[in-house]
Structures are given as C-alpha cells and as structure tokens.
Design a protein around this nucleic acid. Structure first.
Lengths: 340, 340
DNA sequence: CAAAGCTTCGAAAACGGTTTCGTGTTGATA
DNA sequence: TATCAACACGAAACCGTTTTCGAAGCTTTG
C-alpha cells in the first residue's frame, strides 16, 4: 500500500522520454518543446513529484543544512538564539541541525565530526565550557581549514579565525554595576563562574571597571566564583551570610533568583535593603518575585545575525579571509529588584 | 590553502588501486589482502579520510537524521523533550534536525515537506495549535503513506495511525485536583486554553472528574479559557477578582506564576488562603516565589521514548501497522504553593 | 539543391560511495 | 599435466539528480 516515492526515472519511463528531458522540462528549460514540457509537468504534478534532496546535495555539494552546536538547550538564552537562527535560516530555505555538546569537549568534537562530512554547509556554535577550560580548538581549526564556514557566538575564542557575534558582556556588566552605584550601593557583590568562560571573564572585568572608575575598591571577597554551571545552594547561602552586601550582580538568572530567595529568608527587603541584577533576560527574570532587573542579551537577534553571516559566507563561495566580529549592545531591563 | 576533502577516488589514484578495493579495504573486507589493507588504511588515516555522509545516504536510502517538529522551542517542556530525543538519538548515531512550526499550520506543512524528500528517516513531532484547531492532518497522512515513520508526542491526534507517546494528562489533572480537595479546598479554579488543544481538553476532563467524584459541582465560572497561548494579564486579573477561589490549577507554569503574583497583590497568602498547582515542572516552578507545586510531565523521558520508538521502527524496515501508544504517568512535585 | 542553422531531445559523465559479479593469478590436487 | 579452488582485485551498476555535449530532424538560405 506504500506510495513509492516517484523519481525522474519513473516519469521518464512512463512518458517514454529520457531522464534528462524530464529534468529539463521540470526546470522549464527552453530546450524542451512546449508540448513535452506540459505533458511532463502535468504528470509530475499529478504524482506529486518532489526532487530528492539527498541526490541534489550530492550533485551540488550543498546541503542547505546548517549545523548548530550549543552547550545546552534548556538554557533559555541558547533557546532564543536557536529560535533566531531558525527564523533566518528558514526564510532562506535552510534546515537547522541542532546538536548538544552538554558542556563537554568530547561531545562537541564528536558532533562536529558527525556533521562535517557533508551533512551541513556551515556551523554556528557556542563553545562548551569543557572546551574553553581545555583551551583546545583543533576541531574548529580543522573544520575551517576544510573550507567549511563557521560562526561562533557568545562563548567564543580568539584562537580560531572565523566570523563571530557576541554581545558586549563587559559593557553590560559595567552598566549594570554603574546603575547600582548610582543607587548609592557600595557593597556590590558578584556571583559568577570561573574565568575560563569567556563571557564570565568579560563580565567580571566590566564589574571591576565600574567600581574602580567610581572610586570603589574591588574586594575579592565580594566575588563568588561558582565551580560549575550547576546551582550550589550551600555556596550561595554561605556567601550571603559572610558578606554584608547591598547589591548583587549575577552572571545568570538562576543565580540571581536563588540569591533573592536567600536574601528574603535572611529578612532583607528587595530592593530596599539589597538590589539584584542578573544576566539574560529570560522567563525567570520576568516572572520572579520580585521581578528581576536584567541585562538583555538579545539572543534572538544574535541568532539571526549569526545565521545571516553564515549563509552569506556559504553562498558566496570564494573563501575570503576577512572575518568579521559583530558586537551587539546589551540593554538593561529595569524591574522591581532595583530601585526606580 | 584549503585541505580538500579526500575521497575514495583520491586514495585509489594515489595508491594505484581501484576504488572498490579502497572501499573494501577500509571496511576490513576479507576479500583484500593483508598488505593492501594495511597500506590503504594507513594512507586513509594519515589523510584523515572520512566517508561522505551524503553519498552514503543516497546509496543506502538512509540518512541517520531524524526530523523533529515542535511548536516552539522557548517552552521549557519542549526543550526537555528535545534534549531527551537528542540523548537517545545521539547514542544511536543519529542527528536531530529541529524545525519550529511556531504554532502555525502552514509552517508545519512547509517544514514537513522540506524534510520529507529524503532529508530524514523519520519524524517526531508535536502538533501546532494551528493544526489542532484546523483539524487537518493530511500532511501527516501523506508522510506515513510514503512509508516514513512518524511518532507523535504530547499534542497528538487519533486521526493518523502512528506511534504515539503522551503523558496521562487527565490523570495528572485529576490527581492535582484531588490533592487540592484533600486540603479542604472547595472553590477550585482552572486556567486553561481552548479545548481544541488535545492536552488542555484532557486536563479539563481530569479536573472535572475529580470534582464530581468528590461531590463538588463543576462551576463553569471557575474555568478561565485563555484565547491563545500568550499571557493576557488583564484576563487573569479579572478572573481572580470576580471569583473567590481558594485554589487554582493551571495548564502551564506561566499562568500559574502570574496567577500567584495577582493573588499576592490582592493580599492573599499562598498557600494559606489560596493554593496553586501548575502543569510542567520547569525552571519557573522551581524558582518561583513561593515555589510552585507542579505536575511533572517528564519531557526528557518522553523524548527518549519517542526517539526509541522511532528508531526501532526505522531500523526494522518491514512496515508493520501495529502502532503503539505509550502513556507516561505524571507525578506531582509538591512545593510551597500548596500545604504539606 | 546543398549548406547552414534551429529546435528538440538523448547519451553520458559526474557527485562519492557500496556491492555484485567476473577474472586473472596462484598453488594444490588428481 | 590438466583441473580446480582459493585468493586478490577490478569493472560496472546503482542511488537520483544536473548538465554538457552531440546528434538527429527539420527549416531556412544562397
């Protein structure tokens, strides 16, 4: 009962013409007579002929697929980026193959190798923490040396020459910290990850810069560096109990929301006694209680930009080496966790 | 400077053997002598030969790609499902091509057609609300008639014969409602979507069933049906002001979290004056304030199950028609928005 | 009426593999 | 010494397209 997929060959045999004629007729080639074209097109339409993508890919050496490798998909930020990529890619008739590295170097390598052998026309990716920690980018270099375009976003490295798109993390942290200072906060804490993560490092610098510029000494005790991306409730509680803070900047919204909970448990009022600002303007920030002032990373725009850069490079195949880095500007979304 | 991808042909020419010999040697075929095999394998390794996936796909008529079409990727539930799919698929060396229907019938159809022409070995999908509303499943039927395996999850339809995996939404709502009743709640509201959404309908039935079984009349005024998936703050505020509820069941966590905010604004104490339970145990539930008692939908497990069903069907190619529907059991995660 | 030019189509190569089948060479067997 | 099996390899078909090139058959032109 299976309707077998119909091919050019079937049509050719049925209509007693050659395969080439069918192919040309369906492309409305001038070479083919009006009559024959109409016969063939009608037949193809009747049997709902659709060319086989794989065969076309093999012939053209172009798949119209783009590979996206991200550390995690449950992180809201990456989700919005994927959505932006999808949006632009779909408008250009590209498919998106998503792979998760799970923050692991090995999985990142495996996924790249799986896709690099013809499955995709180019990569968009954000480095896993494992990779940034290991500081090994040979898998990326190999891919670019083969002429496969690559766009790095958010978690990038300067080690590999390719297009990049990031937000100005340092600026984001700087502005957020400055905002806190303007509100007469002086004991401003920072909850972050180890500096091996490119974005975490930039944010820390922005935070410190704002403090210094405003005559506030950087107190290392006010900086909590979480060992992993995972929440460790104990560490955060301890941090709040030890340091008497009146404001906290967090590199992600989970840390921020949990920090707020701890502060409330300690009887502090937000934002009267203590202010909070978190990176990534996601669902949590919006629906937290109080709602969280956040630094929006514009993930969707980032995704669209990355997809645009990639597809442009894929489609003009002369491989120029003038790579561009696009820097998006973060914006501060003020809500109830800061005074306004 | 581009390292051209090396092919069998290159190796064959370089080593002065035939392409077939190279192919066999790399597969360690018994046909080829020890010597030749070693020569060829060493050469291939040296030049890092990897077979071209597209060529293999064309030959085998198997792509090792599975297509996933979901309504939205920023919804936490779908994200966890994708993660489950990825996890299982990767372990079987499959890639996952993700497409977003954006809750639109048209986009769903376009995406299916894009992928159905050879790009994938099978589909895993959850219906867009547009499709469920339109009640048109011809695109699904066409695909299955072509012999492409399809697994539907969560938002499914009985109109098309294929494997399915869902959670028992009715049971979830039933248990949640019962839990509220046990806590002496009697004015129990429901915030849901229109009944055209299969899951919303099932949840409404479960809710009503629990009420009836416990001698509580179903009051239609206690049911708020949101016109779309989007939050409409005004509607929710109005609902709470009109009805004096002492408990609310919500079909997603966004409604629940926002409901809690409104309740608090009205001076109600959670859970003393009013309890909340929401579907989908996501980040919001966990980090809400108070944390939200939730019905866990086990998205990751659902994704793994769906991927397993699909890949099993893909790999035994005899197309049996005994389709299975796997029903997962939801669990109630009790937190601070209910008494315990 | 022969040469030239169109129109319309088909053969075949190519993309990069896999696989079947055939064949030449070798050594063992009768 | 003729026969035969085992061994090692290559030719070619095939997957489904696209595209170049050549070649009929016809019409036009000098």
């Amino acid at each position: 009962m299976l309707k077998q997929k119909i091919t050019l060959k079937h049509i050719a045999k049925e209509l007693d013409v050659s395969i080439s004629t069918v192919s040309k007729a369906l492309k409305n080639s001038e070479e083919i007579s009006r009559d024959t074209k109409e016969r063939i097109q009608a037949f193809a339409k009747l049997y709902n002929y659709k060319p086989n993508n794989i065969a076309i890919s093999l012939k053209n050496k172009r798949t119209k697929n783009i590979g996206v490798i991200i550390p995690d998909i449950v992180h809201h930020f990456f989700t919005t980026v994927v959505r932006g990529i999808e949006k632009y890619a779909n408008s250009k008739e590209y498919n998106v193959i998503v792979c998760l590295s799970d923050e692991s170097f090995d999985k990142e390598v495996i996924n790249m190798e799986m896709l690099a052998n013809g499955s995709i026309d180019g990569f968009i990716m954000s480095l896993s923490s494992g990779t940034q920690e290991k500081n090994d980018y040979n898998h990326l270099k190999e891919v670019t040396e083969q002429g496969i375009p690559l766009v790095l976003f958010d978690r990038i490295t300067q080690e590999v020459a390719c297009d990049k798109v990031v937000i100005d993390d340092q600026l984001g942290a700087y502005r957020a910290t400055k905002k806190l200072i303007e509100q007469k906060r002086s004991r401003i804490g920072l909850i972050t990850i180890g500096d091996y993560l490119s974005v975490a490092k930039a944010r820390t610098i922005g935070y410190q810069k704002a403090l210094k510029e405003n005559g506030i000494a950087v107190n290392e005790d006010f900086i909590l560096r979480m060992p992993t991306m995972e929440m460790d409730e104990g560490l955060i509680r301890e941090f709040f109990q030890k340091q008497q803070l009146d404001a906290v900047l967090c590199v992600n919204e989970i840390f921020a929301v949990f920090g707020m909970r701890v502060a409330k448990e300690m009887g502090l009022h937000i934002p009267k006694d203590i202010s909070f600002i978190g990176f990534t303007d996601g669902l949590l920030s919006k629906y937290a209680n109080p709602s969280l002032t956040a630094i929006a990373q514009h993930g969707e725009e980032m995704g669209e930009t990355a997809a645009k850069m990639l597809i442009e490079r894929v489609e003009r195949d002369e491989d120029s080496t003038n790579f561009r880095t696009k820097i998006l500007v973060p914006t501060l979304v003020e809500r109830d966790s800061t005074i306004h």
